[in-house]
Each structure stands twice: as structure tokens, then as C-alpha cells.
Simulated scan of single mutants.
Amino acid sequence: MFPFPDIPNANPALRSQFDAQVGLLAQLSQRNCDLFERLSALNLQMARQAIDDAIDTGRELAACTDPFQMSATAVHRLQPAGEHFRSYQQELFNVLANTQMQQMQQMQPAQPTQTVREAASGFSHPGRPPGDTGPR
């Protein structure tokens, strides 16, 4: 995966384990960067929408001539802001759920190629002739 200088006395099993660990860390780092990118884009979108809502609310409040009209206008502008926040929450939940689902799929252990009983049957037991696998 990631080449590193050959060490003359390197154990091949140790090297393969090291390669696997480095690969796992690289994969986790990439996923974290992708998640951070998606969350940053979502937060930036929410911030822009909040600023636009605040500007629109300010313009409507500045256009009010009656003080009682200002409170009605302010309450009226709460509904779009609440809908935008609800949309943000839903998108945030979707991003986090998709990330968790991807992690769960990646973390599932590989299916073993043989069972423990099959692996143990290959060993000879003391006091038994080779090939005798019957119960005692």
C-alpha cells in the first residue's frame, strides 16, 4: 500500500501487519476529511441562509410604520427561519447516519475461511495416531 524502504531483516508478517494498520489509518483519515468537508458545507449553507433571513427580516421591520405591525412582522418571519433550521437538522442527521452506516459496513469482520473445529482437526492430539479425529 504505502512503500517504505526495505529493511534487510524485516519480518514479512510484521511488515504486512504494519501495511494493514497504515492503510486503515489512511482510510479513516480520508473518511474524517470527507465528513468534515460535508459538515463544513452544510454549516456554511445554514449560516448563509440565516444571514439572508436576518437581512430580509431587517428590511421588513425597517419598512414598518406602526409599532404593532413590527411584532406581527417579526413573528411572521420566524416561520421561514424555523423551516430552514429544521431542514438543516434533517441534512445533518442524514450526513451523520450515512457516515455511521459506512463505518458499520467497513467494520464488519471478514468471514473466516474455516471454523475453529476444522483448524483444530488438523493438529494431532497426544496419545492418538495421526488421522484419528474421533471422540474419546
Rank of each mutant, 00 (worst) to 15 (best):
Q49D: 05
Q79K: 13
Q103P: 02
A13D: 09
L61G: 09
F2Q: 05
D6A: 08
T133V: 05
M104E: 15
Y88H: 11
S29F: 07
Q105Y: 05
Y88Q: 02
Q111L: 15
V22S: 06
E83G: 13
V75Q: 00
D132K: 04
D19M: 12
Y88D: 01
M70I: 08
S40R: 15
N98G: 14
D53S: 03
I55G: 01
T57P: 01
L61S: 06
V95N: 15
L39D: 01
A10I: 03
A63M: 12
A97G: 02
I55H: 04
Q45C: 11
R117I: 14
E83L: 14
A119F: 12
N9P: 01
L39E: 10
A20C: 11
S71K: 07
H76R: 09
N98A: 14
A41I: 08
C33I: 06
R128K: 05
S87K: 08
V22K: 12
L44M: 03
A10S: 13
A20K: 15
Q79I: 13
Q105L: 06
Q79N: 05
P80V: 00
Q89D: 03
S71N: 04
P67L: 07
Y88W: 05
A10C: 08
G131S: 04
M101G: 03
H84Y: 08
S121P: 01
Q89S: 08
M46A: 15
P130W: 06
R31Q: 15
D19G: 06
P109R: 10
E118H: 11
R128T: 02
G134I: 01
T99S: 11
S124L: 11
R59E: 06
A50I: 04
D66A: 02
P80H: 13
R38D: 14
V95H: 15
L24S: 07
P109F: 07
H84T: 11
N98R: 14
T57R: 12
R128P: 00
S29A: 12
A97N: 08
H125D: 13
N94T: 11
